[in-house]
Nucleic acid binder design. Structure first.
Lengths: 358, 358
DNA sequence: GTGAAAGCGCTAACAT
DNA sequence: ATGTTAGCGCTTTCAC
């Protein structure tokens, strides 16, 4: 059997059993075509000064014209490197619905931009929000060198375990005591407080809080809500704290339920813009006016906030900064340094939905 | 030098120069710990019946307890396989803004779900919408075995070239003549026609069309708009066709400009819900009532459509079906079969923004 | 039933 | 300035 057969244009074609799909070009092919060794091609393509400029150029041209690109899988294996970060958007196990909150695309885009800038690829993955630790598999299997997880959900503990296992990890969420992993998040306590203080300043006294306080971010916002009440010498009604989930359909039902429960309120702090909008709709369909009868404040300040009717007062989160901060944190962990958790400033954007009652 | 040194717990630690970050466990480590060869571990972990059940179980336990998982990079290289699909969301080159239209997350989620179901990973990538062919690199470099591209943008030609190069490709967009690649998309012509017919039926006669007809999807919707006019024995005013881009900020400006241009219209067909909402806002800020003075119809029927004030009439796109169709198409191409383009049915959801003029 | 050894596509010493 | 060679972590014939 001839080893040096130069008769084939492309390495290994027609050997395998299957009807081989256009086998990808590999370095050996380029080498043969250029009449040099693979080592030379490798060096030429990586721009090594060891190769004579003319040869380098010739090889580069050849590769380009054939759309050849170094196989990154093989390259990474050999170089022991991996430039992929997994971004995990947990999904609500009950309703396998895909998350409709625009906040997620927004932060995803920001992370994608930041990763691209640093030359990393982004593997998008969805895991059950009840089993965040399943994301660790992406690291164990070497698919990604690090993880960015959007939200702690109910599993601070699982995230801690991942971190204890030394899985490089940056999490969008609230900073919690005894936390082993790095979080980046808006200042939820302050955001909750700003929004609540604003409603109180408008003369609202019975302010409903919409959100599932089992989630750290929401819990912190609730703390802010309480703090603002305390600062005004008031104490909030516990029955006005409604456990509304983020997922759209479940949220709709819970909001309807709240409105029909007979609870009386003249202000609402919702933990997402979506919830706020759903609440406004539920109120209006019951003949209750916003903002005259009930003032509503949302959270995240997504683009829609400015476009609804009435335009929505909302707590603005610095999404692009968040994306960068998450990526920076993770990269510095990968570089061996430790990354402190960061809390980013937020600010209330006042619009029509919370205008002062007449 | 001892080859068989069993003294090290982990392969290659403390050999390299750098302060080695917790070197990942590899098969050799498991093999040593289990007192068998790597071949046995490999077989055991892949559930080969060649291995005695007891041994297999023991090895599985060990691996599990150590969070060991086969390195997929190496596995893929060896097995000549790759289970990654790249999903490309082009960005508008001018405004490097991340796309704020919720439609993109929505379809991204649908694709992610469909890919997960088939055991594929999803690499999310953003490319300049003017250089869609740059996405081919993901395939050339072996990072992904196939591409799903969201939208044709202005570069039908580049997509055709990719397809001609045999890059496995499925595109969300409009079906065009002489198209070498596979598209999946809503029935844009019909969607445009349904929306327009609805507006005409409400007595509207001067209907503005908002969208950049350079984009195939938009062009098809415009065709539907014209067809509906023709069917009613009417002909649309060319000056009411406004080239509004999808990107939020640019759209806002273009819409303001249209409103101030003196163009008179009593109906609007917008090519996204975002545009529709922006238009409603622009009109109202000028004292024009929706739907009394101007009826507005959006496109995509995103969740917000039902939640704005007035609620938005919109053309509903079957996003989950679209995600599955895109994935199925790509997978069947990968399997060697050809995949026909698909046009999915759409339907108009009537809401308040287009109620009949009194 | 298990081990030894070759090789997936590439890079980096070490030759020359 | 270029070629030879030995692996990266894994799977899989082929031996035993």
């Amino acid at each position: 059997m001839l080893q040096d057969s130069t008769s084939d244009n492309v390495t290994k074609n027609g050997q395998g059993g299957k009807p081989q799909i256009p086998a990808r070009l590999q370095m050996a092919d380029i080498a043969r075509l250029a009449g040099v060794s693979v080592a030379t091609v490798s060096r030429a393509l990586s721009g090594s000064p060891l190769i004579k400029a003319a040869t380098r150029e010739r090889i580069a041209q050849l590769a380009q014209s054939l759309n050849y690109t170094v196989n990154l899988g093989a390259q990474n294996l050999r170089m022991q490197k991996n430039q992929t970060i997994a971004v995990v958007i947990p999904f609500d196990a009950g309703s396998r619905q895909h998350i409709s909150d625009p906040f997620f695309l927004s932060i995803l885009g920001a992370i994608a931009d930041a990763l691209t800038e640093h030359g990393y690829d982004m593997l998008l993955s969805r895991v059950d929000s009840e089993q965040l630790d399943a994301a660790g598999r992406l690291f164990d299997a070497g698919k990604a060198v690090g993880l960015i997880i959007i939200g702690q959900w109910r599993h601070h503990d699982q995230l801690n375990q991942l971190a204890a296992r030394k899985v490089p990890l940056a999490v969008w969420g609230g900073e919690l005591p005894q936390q082993l992993y790095c979080t980046v998040g808006g200042d939820n306590k302050d955001g909750g407080a700003q929004a609540t203080a604003h409603l109180l300043a408008q003369g609202r006294r019975r302010i409903a809080f919409l959100g599932d306080a089992d989630l750290p971010e929401v819990w912190l916002r609730l703390e802010g809500y309480k703090r603002a009440h305390a600062a005004a010498g008031l104490s909030p009604q516990p029955d006005l704290q409604a456990r509304i989930p983020f997922e759209e359909e479940a949220a709709r039902q819970a909001i309807e339920h709240l409105c029909d429960s007979g609870a009386r309120f003249d202000g609402v702090l919702a933990c997402s813009d979506l919830m706020a909008i759903q609440m406004i709709q539920a109120l209006r369909s019951r003949g209750i006016k916003v903002p005259q009868d009930v003032a509503v404040v949302g959270y995240d300040d997504m683009p829609i906030a400015g476009y609804c009717e009435p335009s929505l007062t909302s707590v603005h989160q610095p999404i692009p900064a968040a994306g960068q901060a998450l990526v920076n944190a993770l990269l510095s962990m990968l570089a061996g340094s430790s990354a402190p958790s960061r809390t980013l400033p937020v600010r209330l954007i006042e619009r029509e939905s919370s205008r002062k009652a007449s």
